[in-house]
Amino acid sequence: MRESLEKMLAKGVDNSLLRFGLGKAWLDEGNGAEAAVHLARCVEQDPKYSAAWKLLGKAHQLQGDLAAARKAWEEGIVAAQAHGDKQAEKEMAVFLKKLNKTSG
């Protein structure tokens, strides 16, 4: 899956959906650094993509960058609220609450 998405990117296809797919694939493989690169590009291309914000936070958390995870989820909540994505908003609020408990 990831290989075919990377081939598309190499051919010049670059959009938020492709970047989301690549970010998710890298995250599924446990590579937060690569995932964060693609997910950050995804939200640059589509700042309202709340699912991408959610995964971007996860990617940063996986790398141990809790400040970046917090920032991604905070921005993601704003994006989710802006277009009524209640589920993503709730999930990111839970992630933030857990993060705040563990990081003090």
Rank of each mutant, 00 (worst) to 15 (best):
V78Q: 10
L5M: 08
L22Y: 06
A69D: 11
A33C: 02
A33K: 15
L39N: 00
F95G: 00
S103M: 06
I77P: 00
D46V: 02
K97F: 06
A79L: 03
A93L: 05
A52M: 07
Q87M: 11
D28S: 15
D85E: 05
G64I: 12
W26C: 06
Q61G: 13
N15M: 03
S4K: 09
G64A: 07
A68D: 12
R2W: 04
N31K: 14
L66M: 15
T102G: 09
V13L: 13
A67M: 14
S50N: 01
E34W: 10
E74Q: 15
A25Q: 04
Q81M: 11
L66D: 15
L62P: 06
E44A: 03
K48Q: 12
S16R: 07
V78Y: 00
E34R: 11
M92Q: 06
K58L: 14
A33W: 05
R2S: 03
G30A: 10
A40C: 02
A25H: 04
A36F: 03
L39Y: 01
A80R: 01
A52E: 07
L99W: 08
K24L: 07
K7C: 00
D85R: 03
K98M: 08
K101Y: 05
L62A: 11
K11T: 00
S103P: 01
Q81R: 14
L66G: 12
H38Y: 04
K86G: 06
R41F: 00
G84C: 11
V13R: 08
A35V: 03
K58W: 08
K58C: 11
K24T: 05
Q81K: 14
R19C: 10
D85M: 07
K24A: 11
V13I: 07
G12T: 01
A33T: 12
A10I: 00
D65A: 15
A68W: 09
M1E: 10
W53E: 04
K90E: 13
L56Y: 07
T102K: 14
T102R: 11
D46Y: 02
L27N: 08
R2C: 03
L96T: 08
L56D: 02
M92L: 06
Q81N: 13
L55Q: 07
L55S: 06
R41K: 01
G21E: 04
V94G: 09
A93H: 05
L5N: 04
E6M: 07
L27I: 06
L17Q: 12
A68K: 13
E6T: 00
L9D: 00
G21F: 09
K97A: 09
W26E: 06
G23M: 00
L99Q: 10
V94E: 13
V94D: 10
A68Y: 04
E74G: 15
D28Q: 15
Q63M: 15
A52H: 05
A59C: 05
Q87E: 15
L17D: 10
E44C: 04
Q45W: 01
V37L: 03
L62M: 14
H38S: 01
L96Q: 11
A36H: 06
E44K: 03
R70Y: 12
V43C: 03
A88T: 08
E6Y: 03
